[in-house]
Structures are given as C-alpha cells and as structure tokens.
C-alpha cells in the first residue's frame, strides 16, 4: 500500500493535466455539435465528397456526422482513444523505468519488499489513474451530449464504447508496463511508447481501408474500440477474448520478468 500511495502522489500532476486536457477537448468538440447539426444536409454532402478510403478511415462509411453519436464517434472519440492511450502508456511505462533512471530503485529494493510487491504497487497506480481518467472524460462527454442534444440517442452504444475504450487504454498501459521492464532508458522508453501507440493507430486505419489488411483488426488494440464498429454492431466478443488473453499474458510476463531481472545501473 505504501508504494501505491507514494506513486499516486508522484504522478498526480501528470494525471490531472492529461485528464483535464482531454475532458475539456471532448466537451469543447461536442459543444460545436449544434452548429454542425444546424447545417445537417450541408455537412453530409461535404462528408460524401471525401474519397471512399478516407470515409472508411474516419468511420464515415457507417456513421453520420449529423447524428450526435455519429459526430462523437468520428470527431471526438478518436481524440479520447488516441490521447488516452498515450497518457496510459506514458504513465505505466514510466513507473518502473523511472526508478532505475533516477537510481531510486536501489533505495526501493533495499527495503523489505518482494519484487512482486513493487510491481503490484506500480500496477495499482496506473490502473487507478487510467480508470479515473476514463470516468472523468466519459461522464463529462455524456453530460455534454445531454446538454447539446435534444432528443434520444443510443445510450447503451455510448457506454459500450466507453467500456471498450477504457479496456483498450488499460491494454496499452499493460503493454507499456511490460516493455519498460526491458527498456529502461528514459528517452527510449517514452519515444518507444508513443511510437507504439501511433503505429497501432496506423494499423487500425489500414485495417479499415484495405480488404487485404483487414486481418490487422486482430492485431491493433485501437480497432477493438472502433466507434463505427461498436455503435453499429455492439461489442464483438472476439475482441474481448483477445484482450483478456493479451492482458493476462502481459501482466504475467511483467511479474515473471521483473522478479528475475538483474537491476543494473
């Protein structure tokens, strides 16, 4: 518990800045919906003018910009999942590696704690903050929709998307955490983590636009919380299974590797 409390305190500012930024971004973009909806036919025609591949990349082949969730799914959700994943992976990959970079790991491991307890404390830290991030961002988005949109919308679809997006953020966090056991140099960790998120996003776009690359949907976590998929077809069970396996494997590998690792400074 003391490691968890310590790391929560040390990362509080990072958490607050990211969460506030993304929540404000989402609320701001949603507030612009009424002006978009006002010119509904115009915006749809504008969207139809896009090439087919671009429409697919943005999910415009299945979602309509003039619909509140269509607007949210194509314009806002991408920000939440992209920046949220970056936040999650930067947070998780810094927890163990920073102890080594700042040489504080010698202090930590000279205490009467097992390596497992160290990993658990760090895990608790990023899970807590990623969940809090999601709660704040999605509740703020939901409240904004209630204000700017009159009439009903697919509430269940919205929360399905919230759930899957949160799970994707946790997946990125777990993968970054695992990576940081092996790559510990500060700059390498952070650029590697950001690069990983962006490559995964690129793979998602590739899976959306190209028939031949469709199989990539099983590879990139981004696709597992695709707004167009979930808002039109609900939560695909296969992604849940893949996610469960990937996360369980990543965590097991993290505990295993960290407990056996030579800590070299």
């Amino acid at each position: 518990m003391n490691i968890l409390r310590h790391d929560l305190a040390r990362n509080r500012r990072t958490f607050l800045v990211w969460t506030a930024s993304i929540a404000i971004l989402s609320v701001g973009l949603l507030s612009m919906y009424s002006s978009v909806a006002g010119s509904a036919t115009g915006i749809e025609q504008y969207a139809e003018a896009f090439p087919e591949t671009l429409r697919r990349a943005f999910g415009l082949d299945r979602l309509r910009l003039s619909d509140i969730l269509g607007y949210f799914g194509t314009e806002v959700h991408i920000m939440i999942i992209l920046f949220g994943s970056m936040f999650a992976i930067l947070l998780s990959s810094g927890l163990l590696s920073r102890e080594e970079n700042e040489k504080t790991v010698e202090f930590l491991l000279a205490r009467p704690v097992t390596r497992y307890r160290v990993v658990t404390g760090k895990l608790g830290t990023y899970v807590t903050y990623v969940l809090l991030f999601s709660v704040v961002v999605w509740v703020a988005s939901y409240a904004t929709i209630l204000i700017v949109h009159e009439g009903d919308f697919d509430r269940r679809g919205f929360w399905n998307l919230a759930l899957m997006t949160t799970l994707v953020l946790l997946t990125f966090a777990n993968l970054g955490f695992l990576g940081s056991v092996f790559v510990t140099r500060n700059r390498t960790v952070y650029s590697g983590a950001l690069g990983f998120v962006l490559v995964m996003y690129a793979l998602q776009v590739a899976a959306d636009v190209s028939e031949r690359l469709r199989f990539l949907k099983y590879v990139t976590p981004m696709k597992w919380a695709s707004a167009a998929d979930i808002l039109t077809a609900g939560i695909p069970g296969v992604y849940l299974v893949i996610m469960l396996v990937v996360n369980a494997a990543a965590l097991a590998a993290t505990y295993y590797a960290y407990a056996r690792k030579d800590i070299l400074l």
Binding site: R10, E102, K103, T104, V105, E106, F107, A110, R111, P112, V113, T114, L265
Partner: peptide
C-alpha cells in the same frame, strides 16, 4: 525480504526522489 529487515544499505551514488 527477511534479510532486508535487518540490513541497512548506503548506495555509492544515491538517488532519493
């Protein structure tokens, strides 16, 4: 873990948050 309850360690080049 048991050992470390009874051992104090002063690192050569310390990092202390």
């Amino acid at each position: 873990r048991e050992i470390k309850r009874q051992v104090g360690y002063l690192p050569g080049e310390a990092g202390y948050y």
